[in-house]
């Protein structure tokens, strides 16, 4: 029984990781932009959940509000800053987005302060399912997993099956040719970037009740996100999903079976994958 629950833990953690990493791999894969500020967007999401839930009285009203705000923030950032760097070297993108991390952290400190906060689980989902005689599983965690699965399906459908998705994919493989065919690539890029930001903010908001809200939380997430993107193959959503689940398993079982190695287990996994598939599981070499 214990092992079954550990498998549940692994899947649940993996899906949550996918939710955060998907936005990063989207921006990286389609636009070729290395976005170090991705963790900050996750942090902003968590703080938005905290402030908006306090303002509106419920996480359910805070969620759509937060997503709209995040999308707007993404658009503004893309138009004002990111769009100027497409033709430049990756180093400029790293510098700019690293600067954004500092700006966002300082703004968080000024606006909300440096205290740690918690966000209440919505009353509807604030329950636990008994699994063994003394252990129960919080319903909200299962809810997060379900949301992640729905979102993964939705993203797959949008990118593979819709006209918009086709334009996005075309823009990713050859931006100039796509533009020559009469598609406004600037608009597509702005949209993709904003969607990536909204995904990270959404992940931060929905995870806030279980992760709590604290300064520096974005940086923790950023590193694991990059590991996922690298293992999965840059730009591949399917790769990101599989990599997230793999990391969920390695991390959970690493902690139980090889506690001495728990800190390096996920990095070992990355090294092994890269040894055999230098472009990641689903990356194009």
């Amino acid at each position: 029984m214990e092992w079954l629950i550990q498998i549940l833990n692994s899947v649940q953690y993996g899906l949550l990781l996918f939710l955060v990493a998907s936005g990063l791999t989207l921006i990286f894969g389609i636009m070729g932009v290395i976005n170090l500020a991705h963790g900050s967007f996750y942090m902003i999401g968590a703080y938005l959940a905290f402030s908006l839930a306090e303002l509106t009285g419920s996480l359910w009203t805070a969620l759509p509000l937060g997503i709209v705000l995040a999308f707007a923030l993404g658009l503004v950032l893309e138009i004002l800053l990111i769009s100027r760097l497409y033709r430049r070297d990756h180093l400029y993108q790293v510098l700019l987005t690293f600067g954004l991390i500092l700006v966002f952290e300082e703004m968080r400190s000024i606006l909300v302060g440096d205290d740690v906060h918690g966000v209440a689980i919505p009353a509807l989902l604030d329950a636990s399912l008994p699994l063994t005689e003394n252990l129960s599983y919080p319903v909200y965690r299962l809810f997060i997993s379900a949301v992640c699965l729905v979102l993964a399906a939705l993203m797959y459908f949008t990118i593979q099956k819709t006209r918009l998705g086709m334009m996005v994919r075309a823009g990713a493989s050859n931006a100039e040719m796509t533009q020559a065919l009469g598609i406004n690539i600037r608009w597509i890029h702005a949209l993709v970037f904003a969607a990536g930001v909204a995904l990270a903010v959404f992940a931060g908001m929905i995870a806030a009740p279980v992760s709590s809200v604290f300064p520096g939380m974005g940086n923790q997430v950023l590193i694991i996100c990059f590991v996922i993107v690298v293992i999965g193959g840059i730009g591949s959503l399917k790769g990101a999903l599989i990599a997230s689940l793999l990391i969920g398993f390695v991390d959970t079982f690493g902690k139980v079976l090889l506690p001495e190695l728990a800190g390096v287990a996920v990095y070992l996994l990355m090294a092994i994958v890269l040894l055999f598939r230098p472009a990641g599981l689903y990356g194009r070499p």
Partner: peptide, 22 residues
């Protein structure tokens, strides 16, 4: 004695183990 890397906050695996160790 259980340890997790600092500042990891994914406790679920340990909580499951504590429940079964009683």
């Amino acid at each position: 004695e259980m340890y997790l890397p600092f500042p990891n906050v994914e406790f679920q695996a340990f909580i499951t183990e504590i429940a079964s160790l009683k």
